[in-house]
């Protein structure tokens, strides 16, 4: 990754992120000013519940403005991710993992059977990320191995949490 490309990436990202923080910070500060001050309980403007959120929102908006200003002036600070070789990372892999993990979390939160969900999740995760690297008999071993891991984790986690920690799982 050349320094120019990493700087361009950092500038573009800081510009949009800075604008986002400015908007978010301003929204927080505005919301904080609408918080009631319980004067009948002795509160004043500076001891009311909205003081700290107002200060934090304002601070966030200011820091966002600094990021925008730096980006416009070409003074963004590239980080390790800007300098990473795009061939070594893939956002699609993260997205695939996120979809699987979100699905598993949703099934768990919606009280679906724990062991069944866990087995399906682990099996699908291992298969998805290893399928391309395995061929022929190796694929069969992958499918079987993933199933063994999924069953072992599903049943052992349920045993440990339900019998040792007395936590009721769905």
């Amino acid at each position: 990754m050349t320094p120019d490309v990493s700087m361009m990436r950092a500038r573009a990202r800081d510009l949009w992120a800075g604008l986002g923080w400015m908007t978010f910070g301003a929204a927080i500060a505005a919301h904080a000013t609408s918080m009631p001050i319980p004067r009948h309980l002795g509160a004043t403007t500076i001891t009311g519940p909205g003081l700290l959120p107002f200060m934090l929102g304002t601070g966030l908006a200011l820091l966002g403005a600094i990021l925008v200003l730096r980006s416009v002036r070409g003074q963004a600070v590239p980080g390790p991710d800007d300098e990473a070789d795009p061939a070594t990372v893939s956002n699609r892999r993260s997205f695939a993992a996120l979809v699987l993990m979100f699905g598993y979390a949703a099934a768990f939160a919606l009280r679906q059977p724990f062991v069944l969900c866990t087995v399906i999740f682990i099996w699908a995760f291992v298969i998805l990320f290893n399928w391309r690297e395995a061929w022929g008999a190796a694929r069969l071993r992958l499918v079987a191995g993933a199933l063994v891991l999924a069953l072992a984790v599903g049943f052992s986690v349920e045993f440990v949490f339900e019998n040792l920690f007395y936590v009721r799982l769905p």
Partner: peptide, 16 residues
């Protein structure tokens, strides 16, 4: 790729 799904399970079950 074999370790991370196990960690993901623990990340969700532990805090619950």
């Amino acid at each position: 790729t074999w370790l991370m799904p196990v960690i993901a399970v623990l990340c969700l079950v532990g805090p619950y």
